[in-house]
């Protein structure tokens, strides 16, 4: 965010570097049930992001002191593969992935009916295989499909998308250059049928009015992501059999 350059992110006709309109999302494709070992899984491609999510559980809670008598403990792990970015990422947890994992876990807690499975845990593991801006939204969108695919009871899905500021415009779903050279990023996640906001972050520089516009646009993006989640889960059982 905020790197200085002469790159023009929006041309005179209002088109972005990759030819998208201001409110256009990068192509999003999701497939449910892709891993044999996991209880539920999903593979997602969003622009050049490639993300895979696996859910295990509910199962015996380890370490045991994390168990809660009030419900299942969600454990979300966002991880970037070393080869997912241009400069090799040192393997393992860092502060960024710790933070993303924490807020994504909290977002999913709103919809998962954890109280059905006291003292157990549900592991949600997301690996970013190729990163191209917007990985936390991609990861959360995939994780939600994997949870449903694991048959875990949920009030609703969680769908996620970001908006941001490129040049002087508020745009949907920042691409990599827009992320590096843009002025602000607003990742969001909502519960589709109520519109409740379960994840909201912002960094950069926005006026109050721009912030509101960005939230409205991100909400639209979340609904587009939701449509793809729905398609993916319905497609798995289409035509009489599991693939």
């Amino acid at each position: 965010m905020g790197m200085k350059s002469d790159i023009k992110l929006i041309d005179a006709k209002g088109k972005r570097l990759d030819g998208r309109a201001i409110d256009e999302m990068r192509p999003l494709k999701i497939e449910a049930g892709v891993l044999e070992q996991a209880d539920g899984s999903a593979y997602l491609e969003w622009g050049n992001n490639k993300v895979i999510a696996a859910v295990y559980g509910p199962r015996e809670c380890l370490p045991r002191h994390k168990a809660s008598p009030y419900g299942s403990t969600l454990m979300y792990r966002y991880n970037m593969a070393p080869f997912s970015v241009d400069d090799r990422k040192r393997p393992g947890r860092d502060r960024r992935s710790t933070e993303i994992s924490k807020i994504s876990e909290e977002a999913l807690n709103k919809v998962v009916l954890t109280e059905r499975f006291p003292n157990s845990m549900i592991n949600i593991n997301v690996e970013v295989l190729q990163a191209d801006a917007g990985t936390r939204c991609a990861a959360l969108t995939a994780a939600s499909v994997a949870l449903a695919d694991a048959g875990i009871p949920m009030k609703d899905m969680v769908a996620s998308c970001a908006a941001g500021k490129a040049g002087d415009h508020i745009v949907l779903d920042l691409g990599k250059l827009e992320d590096n050279f843009g002025k602000a990023d607003v990742p969001m996640a909502i519960v589709p049928h109520t519109g409740e906001i379960v994840l909201l972050q912002m960094d950069g520089d926005l006026s109050p009015k721009e912030f509101k516009t960005a939230m409205t646009l991100a909400t639209k993006g979340c609904m587009m992501a939701y449509e793809e989640q729905k398609k993916a889960l319905k497609a798995k059982y289409k035509g009489g059999g599991k693939k």
Binding site: K155, D156, M157, H193, K238, G240
Partner: peptide, 10 residues
Amino acid sequence: MREVVIPGEK
């Protein structure tokens, strides 16, 4: 065939 539904679907 019965319809496949997802969490949160009305």
